[in-house]
Design a protein around this nucleic acid. Structure first.
Lengths: 197, 197
DNA sequence: ACCTGAACACCGTTCAAGT
DNA sequence: ACCTGAACACCGTTCAAGT
């Protein structure tokens, strides 16, 4: 029951992204329509085209937003962790937790729906999140816990592992007996062994 | 320029799935429309509903078809590999190769578009493909190359790794310098170390 | 500069009707 | 049993027009 007033959004693009994220989170990607977003913001359904090229571009912004909070989550997990050989474990847990608690949003980030269309860059936001992982690996290398391979390459491997765990959980591929937090714990252990010095 | 004749398909559902797979492979998931499938098969656009509940169900069949060929690919890779500690490596290569050569089809299999709607089982086809992996792990355990954890759990971990590598490749997350076959080679090595006895 | 309203082309799905 | 044809409700997008 929003009161209609002379529209003067401080930041309509931002409001649209937030509304899109909310819709995706609560009702799923299929329920995201430009008409719905516009209506819920008290704006015409074509107002979006003033700020985004098309729906695809809106999804790109949604994905970027997701990568930002994922980066923050990873950073927080890393900074809160105690030094030691398993210092990276909380990052893995945080990663999978993000995916499981925001399944639709996570799918938009990795679903290929984003840059399937235009030649848009996958987004510097994803590289930012990746950078947090690389930094952690470098630190663990200096602490003597991780083998001295190229940190970028090791980070790709680690990302593949946690991403794979997250996706299997999201797709319901895990047997009922195997919960996602159990699998990431197991994966963390095998991962550590695999990249140890 | 197909000749119109009294329609008598031997197996229309099967033809529809094949046509859908072809469309997805050549033009992408977004280009898949029931109208198009019908037209290319010389049949009404609503004929599909005689054999499938809806478009979702057709995608489910497409996914199942994908899991079958993936299973065959994995099995072939395993059987062609020489005994030894790195005997599972070709399976990893075959897995990523399947994903990279059939990106859209692979996304349908894991995109969540399938069982996002109905309460349809993820498909015994995926479990079949998974079973090939479990068998390989059991064999490697008996050969003394893989630690004696629960094979199912180890298989989940291995699947997460290759699935993660495949997804990162498909999403264009890999730097230009890192090709997917290079990453899976690296991943295979670290994976082996991680699960070795 | 920013937003609207009508219109366009397209889609999945339903349903009565045909053979 | 299997397929058709018209109709329905919905969608993303375009564009001339308003302020």
């Amino acid at each position: 029951v929003a009161i209609k007033q002379p529209y003067h959004h401080g930041d309509l693009p931002r409001a649209m992204v937030q509304e899109a994220v909310r819709t995706i989170q609560t009702e799923g990607l299929a329920a995201l329509t430009l008409r719905g977003v516009g209506a819920r913001l008290g704006v015409s359904r074509t107002a979006l085209y003033r700020h985004f090229a098309d729906k695809q571009a809106l999804l790109g912004a949604v994905a970027a937003e997701g990568f930002r909070t994922l980066r923050d989550d990873l950073r927080a997990a890393w900074q809160a962790s105690a030094p030691g050989p398993d210092r990276m474990d909380p990052m893995g847990v945080a990663y999978v937790r993000f995916a499981v608690t925001h399944p639709s949003h996570y799918r938009v980030m990795f679903g290929g729906a984003v840059h399937a269309g235009a030649g848009e860059t996958p987004g510097d936001e994803s590289t930012d999140a990746f950078a947090v992982l690389v930094e952690a690996i470098v630190a663990q290398q200096q602490a003597g816990f991780v083998r001295r391979d190229d940190p970028q390459q090791l980070a790709l491997y680690v990302w593949a592992v946690v991403h794979g765990v997250a996706m299997l959980a999201l797709d319901g591929m895990l047997p009922d007996a195997v919960r996602s937090d159990w699998l990431i714990a197991f994966a963390n252990e095998r991962l550590r062994t695999g990249i140890a010095e």
